[in-house]
Amino acid sequence: MFNETYPITAGVLHDQRRSLTVWGSAMAGITVMYVSIFPVMGGLDIEALVSSFPDALVEALGYNEIGTASGYISSTVFGLLAPIILAVFSIGVGSRLIAGTEEDGTLELELASPTSRRAIYVQRLGALWADIVLLVAVVSAVTWAMVVGLSLDVAFMNLVAASIGLGLLVLGFGTIALAVGAATGRRPVAIGVAAAITVVGFMFDAIGPTIDAGWMMAVSPFSWYMDNNPLSQGFDVVGTAMLAVLPLAVGAVGLIGYERRDLMV
């Protein structure tokens, strides 16, 4: 079955079972902690506080709608903590799955086995994507449980839209790490490139609106994801499409590099 058809994906997921449990629990804990604070903050009149901030700061922090449940969850869990923490996870795992295993030699027997480089690449990428789907599903499910439990005003379909955006965003960063690692065979290069793109994308999204630099938002994956506030506005077709194209395009380029290169296991 799955084990026989996709032995490499199954093997990676099996190896990760403990670390995925830890990451999943941590994401669930963070989500519970942040969302549960919202009703308490309602009494503090947070909007009055935020309105005393300079407009540029409010814009940069994305606190425009901090007084509503969807705005608050956007500003904290979906717009900040989950993307950053999951990007760290995704880049770490993405860079390890091919470049890391090539560097420490554990990929050698797999490469010498009757498996094509393409199958190794695609199945390892598949494992990375499965990891991210799983962790984003944890964040989304816990958020929805909190929304229902605390009777917060967040539409289910909007949560679905934000979850898909979050998943694709993080998947993009992880895929960059895996693809660069596969094309170069060097884990530090993979981490460096993917982390730089993540940080620059995050800064462009924060700074772009305050200095009227539309091009910064046009190229930032964070802007594709958050510009139209999916938690309050629902699906943004263009942004979602951009987020989906990024991992597919980068993934394809990485595979071409991987199939042509000398492997130094």
Binding site: L109, A112, S116
Partner: peptide, 12 residues
């Protein structure tokens, strides 16, 4: 490719 490697046993 894979078909050829299926007939090889390799000890690194």
């Amino acid at each position: 490719g894979p078909e050829l490697r299926s007939r090889i046993g390799y000890l690194p």
